[in-house]
Nucleic acid binder design. Structure first.
Lengths: 145, 145
DNA sequence: TATTGTTATACTCTATAACTATA
DNA sequence: TATAGTTATAGAGTATAACAATA
């Protein structure tokens, strides 16, 4: 029988994405981190003093769902908060947070090698360029909130 | 600031997959179908007489979650069931199911054009080949149940 | 002993709505 | 009037466990 998904890019995109996410989630669980929490550490590290709304905007996570995640990272002492004005709060990694970020980064890179190791660096970069051009374009059309 | 996700294929894979799935879900909602239900119609159409366990195995959906979905499609008169032996049930599309499958297929193709339209057919096929080689390989290592 | 199909149930992720405090 | 942050809650999607019937 003919494969009904043969020409459907979206189908294959999703199947691989699900497998990759499951692998990443399992790997990060050893650090007691979820994928989104690790991403938050990466974004805050790259943008010290960023607000949590902005982190959510970058990652595509809604304000309402950011609150409990930030609370969790605060409770664990991985990030610190400092008021900028009456409503903005600047987020930064603590020492433990920076240490955790480094471990998470290593974890993610091992994961990438495990899942995408059969592709050369050049092939991966080419894929990244194509994927990024497709998902970072629809910002205007998509309703990110 | 440097983009912390710049070299991470998995990140871009997921971001695009989420956007694509949201677009597909919205499009299929006009037919009152979820993406997985549409996929089921495609698989049953391509494999008349297939069992629901086998459909689940192909799509990566667990037995326990297949039951209510099959029940829904039966209730709507889109698929029919015939006992093969005491435990296997052969699934087939009804007339209405075949009509719905055709509509869903058109819907999916329009969706693919909308999301991936900036890629040539050749680029898409190349992407599909790479993605398929990555996700259809780990069958052995992954625990699909 | 392994498999099909079913039910019940829990957990995660995400979405909406409403609220406050502030710009 | 718009935005930041919070809380509560509802809805998908997916996970496990247990069961009966059958191979």
């Amino acid at each position: 029988m003919t494969d009904p998904f043969e020409g459907l890019l979206g189908y294959h995109l999703r199947r691989l994405s699900v497998i990759a996410m499951a692998d990443l989630a399992t790997a990060l669980a050893h650090l007691d981190l979820r994928p989104t929490e690790a991403s938050m550490l990466f974004v805050i590290d790259a943008n010290p003093g960023i607000s949590q709304s902005e982190v959510g905007r970058i990652l595509g996570v809604k304000r309402a769902n950011m609150a409990p995640m930030v609370a969790t990272l605060m409770r664990r002492g991985l990030i610190e908060r400092e008021p900028v004005d009456g409503r903005l709060q600047a987020l930064r990694l603590s020492c433990e947070g920076e240490s955790m970020r480094a471990k998470a980064r290593a974890c993610v890179e091992t994961h990438e090698e495990r899942v995408f190791g059969s592709l050369s660096r050049g092939e991966r970069n080419q894929m990244i360029a194509v994927l990024a051009s497709l998902w970072s374009k629809p910002e205007a059309e998509m309703d990110v909130e």
